[in-house]
Design a protein around this nucleic acid. Sequence first.
DNA 1: TAGGTCATTGACTTTGGGTCAGTGATGTGC
DNA 2: GCACATCACTGACCCAAAGTCAATGACCTA
Lengths: 201, 201
Amino acid sequence: MNKRQISAQNTKRKLVSTALELLKEKGFDAVNVEDITKKAGVAKGTFYTYFKRKEDIVLDISRVPFSEIAEELEKMHGLDIIEKLTHYFHRFMECVEYGGIHICRQWTRDVLDPNSVPENKDGKKWAYDYNMLKKILELAIQNGELAKETPVELMTHIIISELYGMMTCWCMSDGEFEPLEWTEKFCKVQLKAIFEPYLIK
Amino acid sequence: MNKRQISAQNTKRKLVSTALELLKEKGFDAVNVEDITKKAGVAKGTFYTYFKRKEDIVLDISRVPFSEIAEELEKMHGLDIIEKLTHYFHRFMECVEYGGIHICRQWTRDVLDPNSVPENKDGKKWAYDYNMLKKILELAIQNGELAKETPVELMTHIIISELYGMMTCWCMSDGEFEPLEWTEKFCKVQLKAIFEPYLIK
DNA sequence: TAGGTCATTGACTTTGGGTCAGTGATGTGC
DNA sequence: GCACATCACTGACCCAAAGTCAATGACCTA
């Protein structure tokens, strides 16, 4: 990377971190693009060299924590599928708490926005979740933990819907419950029930 | 109701039905307030005598089908709690299919919008779901179907998160799966697992 | 050193949500 | 039945803020 590219990377990073700060405190609608660029020390136009729309920066904020989870899971060995997924749920909800309610709200709204651009190559809008979870399931089938007839895609959808349901519910209730507590309860009861029919013991 | 009030009611109904038609076809962002009022045969300003914000009309669209579900459940007797909830899930997903993906998307986005106004008196934003589901659970405890120690509020949250999770997932996948099929599978497996610890046989 | 690239700028355009003073039909009190 | 109040309705207007783009100059390459 040459000087120019490094400086560009820094500008983008500065924008993302400033946005995280401002959005976490005030919420998406209460912060406009100029608030972010002014605080980041750049001009308004610069924002649009890095993001097509105001909304896109929120999806970008979540990119780092999510890729961290992915890395973690790659490295994990010796865990069965339920343990792996439990870990995934915990880490997901930790991200939820880290981002705070305002950012989570907007993130979910962005993912539901028909105008938002899919971030990964295959055109799906599932952030990282879909492919990551699918991989975990496929591995479990290879390992002989799960039956070969397991409907991988359906199960992946179900797991994602559980994650997003929890998050949506948490945002709607204005953070009325503890995401981690709930997750714990959830994983012990429902996760097992979902996989029960396909588990090989 | 006098002439004036009837005419006002008709205007509002006309706006809601026109909006349903347009939003279902084109999506929320592709339709502006003037499109709706023009097609409904009124002036733009009229829209704002009935709705504070453009977004509010979407929540209104869902009001009729939801109150229908509530009525239905009131009348139902002789069903146990799992059957009742299964029915609720089915009817909910029927509404989802009826409204179509565009309206569901916007509806979920509205519920997550911190600026949207709570529709019921107690200030909660759960549409009708929360109170309705809570009532079902409380009734089941009275009937001796569920243990007295059942954590009603937590369970209600969990059920709502399942509903909203399914819907969100369906919208995000651009209607990739059949909501009703999924619901069936869901109710048979997870719903039972959730209530297992509290069911009295 | 010359010529091209590209991140950056900020004044400008655009868009569409939302406002409000005015109008007339309908309702109410005497 | 008359006068006054009410209120649904109108549409020209306002305006915030998202998004654009021609100009700039620092940096890169040959």
